[in-house]
């Protein structure tokens, strides 16, 4: 006596296949590495601050991030990346709360330039990690699942079917997909203009702050002018992005109404068909 025979036959004849895009494992490792780099740099910076609380907080957070990354493995998702960002924000807030002369933000043994280098390099690592997540979600994590014939019977069945399709509208030929590098290049090409526009913004901001420094040599007063004005500029840019969203035409509501009437018609047609068949 056997279990469901037709199920067993199906498993014998068809094999479930999953395409793994070349380079996906490299991307997973890179994702993990950049996470480690970001936390490592920030842990080193907190070590230089000689503040035990801040150092232990970042050490614990770094460990949590590393462990969650390891357990998650290939399951890289944008939503799970929010947790990663959350730890960074929480760590920063806690460091600020515990901040004194020896903390990582106002240390005595690190110069301003050193702090900038540490922070910007961590920021770059985090950003690269985010970008990797994007690429992974876009090209690698797609469910590229299909079935392939395994037994002789199934193979012959497909061969015969394809032969029968020749010279019909459904003539079968393998679909030519674009290569991986073309996909990467396409996405990167789309980011050139935004990068230029944002970098122009950054340069303008830098020029503006240099100008203020030149006019008012006193650091404290000049920063009091620079920072609020940059914040206002940032808010203005985000308002611009939000306003852009409102410009996009909303087309979904109209289509729903049309669909409803179609369903009603289909039901009627089905009823008529059934009547004809049964009579």
């Amino acid at each position: 006596m056997d279990m469901r025979i037709r199920d067993r036959i199906f498993e014998e004849e068809w094999k479930k296949t999953v395409i793994s895009t070349p380079g996906s494992s490299i991307l997973v490792v890179a994702h993990l590495l950049f996470g480690i780099f970001a936390t490592a740099i920030i842990i080193i910076q907190s070590a230089f601050s000689f503040n035990v609380y801040i150092f232990s907080i970042w050490l614990i957070f770094g460990l949590i991030i590393l462990l969650t990354d390891l357990f998650r493995g290939r399951n890289i998702k944008l939503s799970s990346e929010l947790g990663f960002g959350f730890f960074f924000i929480l760590g920063t807030i806690l460091s600020l709360l515990l901040g004194n002369v020896y903390s990582m933000f106002f240390p005595e043994n690190l110069g301003r330039i050193d702090i900038l280098i540490f922070q910007i390099s961590t920021g770059i690592c985090v950003s690269i990690r985010f970008l990797i997540t994007f690429f992974y979600e876009e090209f690698f994590s797609q469910e590229q699942e299909f079935i392939a014939p395994d037994s002789k019977y199934a193979k012959e069945q497909i061969e015969q079917y394809i032969l029968n399709l020749v010279k019909t509208d459904f003539e079968y030929s393998e679909i030519e997909q674009i290569g991986l590098f073309e996909k990467w290049w396409y996405t990167l090409k789309k980011m050139i203009w935004p990068t230029i526009s944002v970098s122009i913004l950054i340069t303008l901001a830098a020029l503006y702050s240099l100008l203020i420094y030149y006019i008012i040599p006193n650091d404290a007063i000049s920063e009091l002018i620079i920072v609020p004005s940059l914040i206002i500029a940032a808010i203005l840019y985000s308002i611009l992005l939000i306003r852009l969203n409102d410009v996009i035409p909303k087309m979904q509501e109209k289509e729903k109404k049309i669909l409803e009437s179609e369903e009603w018609e289909e039901d009627l047609l089905e009823e008529i068909n059934e009547e004809i068949v049964s009579s």
Binding site: T92, Q119, T122, G123, T195, L241
Partner: peptide, 15 residues
């Protein structure tokens, strides 16, 4: 005055 947050912020904007 923390550039750790500013850099990812810019990347978000670019994307």
């Amino acid at each position: 005055d923390n550039y750790l947050l500013v850099v990812p912020g810019f990347i978000f904007w670019i994307v």
